[in-house]
């Protein structure tokens, strides 16, 4: 297990990197440090952003120094790396109706499969919540089966409703806003990942696992 690399992000944040690729074991170290920081936040820590293989620590440079903050975080990373975090499992129902999954045919053609085989392959995948990123409630899931891993479209296309289930490469995402995307739209779910009015507006946590089933 390699030692984490620390990089400055201006004078008020550092990035701690545990690797440079999308990998569940590396992401588990990110999640473990994130939880250790939440349980025992170092003096001056403002906010953390866990991602695939790195975590951003924002701090108040008037309350602490980069050196002190990094020393405290690395000490936590050492003890946290042995901790195995068990996430929750979620089941997400998906409609693969042609109106909900307009790109199913194209994905099937590129993968050399019948569209029913695309659905079966997708449902057989085991997905992990790696991070939230980009915009509110956009949970990045890894675990798309290799046969369905396609490069994204050359140009983003508009008009896909919230709840769209989209894939690109090894990644899968359930959208929360109507946004243009260059990913492949293969289905849609009625399950709100972002429920703005809820006490707990975000359904998943990094480290959770997802199973999709046909609605």
């Amino acid at each position: 297990m390699s030692a984490p690399v620390v990089r400055a992000v201006g004078e008020a944040a550092v990035l701690i990197e545990f690797g440079d690729r999308i990998d569940a074991a590396i992401n588990a170290r990110v999640v473990a440090l994130d939880r250790a920081l939440a349980a025992a936040p170092p003096h001056g820590l403002v906010e953390t952003i866990p991602a695939y293989c790195s975590i951003m620590l924002e701090y108040d440079p008037l309350m602490t120094t980069q050196a002190e903050l990094v020393a405290a975080a690395l000490a936590l990373a050492d003890s946290a790396s042995a901790t195995v975090i068990k996430g929750r499992e979620h089941v997400v129902p998906v409609s693969f109706d042609p109106l909900d999954g307009p790109d199913l045919d194209q994905v099937a053609a590129q993968a050399g499969l019948h569209w029913e085989e695309v659905i079966a392959a997708f449902l057989a995948g085991r997905y992990r919540v790696f991070l939230y990123g980009f915009a509110p409630g956009y949970a990045y899931l890894g675990g798309v089966p290799p046969v369905l891993q396609l490069p994204r479209k050359p140009i983003a296309q508009r008009g896909h409703p919230a709840g769209s289930v989209i894939i690109a490469g090894p990644q899968c995402l359930i959208t929360t806003l109507p946004m243009p995307t260059g990913w492949w739209v293969i289905g849609r779910t009625d399950l709100a990942i972002l429920d703005p009015a809820s006490e707990r507006p975000f359904r998943f946590d990094p480290g959770d696992t997802i199973r999709f089933e046909r609605a």
Partner: peptide, 11 residues
Amino acid sequence: DMPSEPALPGC
């Protein structure tokens, strides 16, 4: 070739 990473204002 980098996986998505966190960002802050000023980046």
